[in-house]
């Protein structure tokens, strides 16, 4: 076993996860093992529960207030629904990229350092130079530094393109060193050029982070992911290597969806 190594191979493990929005059951007995360090994509028709799974992993869907869950989700071998789990700590470990780029209405600089400032132990203050270094490193990592280095103090919601905003939203996750990145259709608001750029970036981050990517776009799943999960009606239908799934799907529903007979 790899308990001593402190580095389990599985980044996210869901154990018979059921989820209800009020009376409506959205997930049925979901058992998933998302491996560490690779990109796993989730595909399936609208309403199949793929975003719900994603939004359960950092518990952001609890904002709705009427969500009920049974089962467990282990992130790095720790059940995130245990009573002793600190939400802030969980969300430090698990970063989330949303469908529409949503930079905060503060400066680009403050956006990038936002998470870092929040998760700093109370009372401790970083030297300005150190903060500058963190911001620069994160922006360089997402290939945005050269474009924004002259306007770091400009409001992030003003004059960035959608692609740049989405990259900024990825950049602001990095300073707190998350283990898992959740991406909820991160390219669906972007044009083809922006999509390509963000996909390249996601591929760049592979290895360093475990990435779970929800997408509507099967070609994207095929291009960018190592493994692929197909969901239908709140259930996991198939989970295999992406190449295998798109070439030799084991279930008929998967084959029908991939070939575009529904969805």
């Amino acid at each position: 076993m790899n308990i001593q190594e402190n580095q389990p191979d599985i980044a996210i493990r869901t154990v018979s996860l059921n989820l209800w929005y009020g009376q409506f059951q959205a997930l049925f007995d979901v058992n998933l093992e998302i491996k560490q360090g690779i990109i796993t994509s989730m595909i399936g028709p609208s309403g199949c529960g793929k975003s719900t799974v994603l939004r359960s992993v950092d518990r952001i869907n609890e904002r709705l207030g009427y969500v009920r869950i049974t089962g467990a989700i282990n992130v790095l071998d720790k059940n995130i629904y245990d009573v002793d789990v600190d939400l802030a700590q969980l969300r430090k470990q698990v970063g989330m990229v949303f469908q529409r780029p949503n930079p905060l209405p503060i400066s680009i600089y403050d956006n990038v350092i936002f998470g870092h400032r929040i998760h700093r132990p109370p009372g401790s203050k970083l030297h300005r130079d150190e903060e500058d270094g963190i911001v620069e490193a994160a922006l360089r990592r997402v290939l945005l530094w050269d474009k924004v280095k002259d306007k770091l103090q400009r409001k992030a919601t003003l004059d960035l393109s959608l692609e740049e905003r989405q990259k900024l939203c990825i950049a602001r996750l990095l300073p707190v060193k998350p283990a898992v990145l959740l991406m909820d259709e991160p390219c669906s608001a972007l044009d083809p050029k922006g999509t390509a750029a963000v996909e390249d970036l996601i591929w760049e981050l592979r290895g360093e982070y475990s990435i779970l990517l929800v997408t509507h776009n099967m070609a994207q799943a095929r291009r960018t992911s190592d493994e692929c999960v197909f969901m239908l009606m709140g259930r996991v239908m198939e989970h295999s290597k992406t190449d295998d799934m798109f070439v030799t799907p084991t279930r008929r529903e998967t084959a029908d969806y991939i070939e575009g007979r529904y969805g």
Binding site: I60, R63, L87, R91, M96, N102, G115, I118
Partner: peptide
Amino acid sequence: YREAAEALG
């Protein structure tokens, strides 16, 4: 904005 900030912890 709220969602983004909460998701950052």
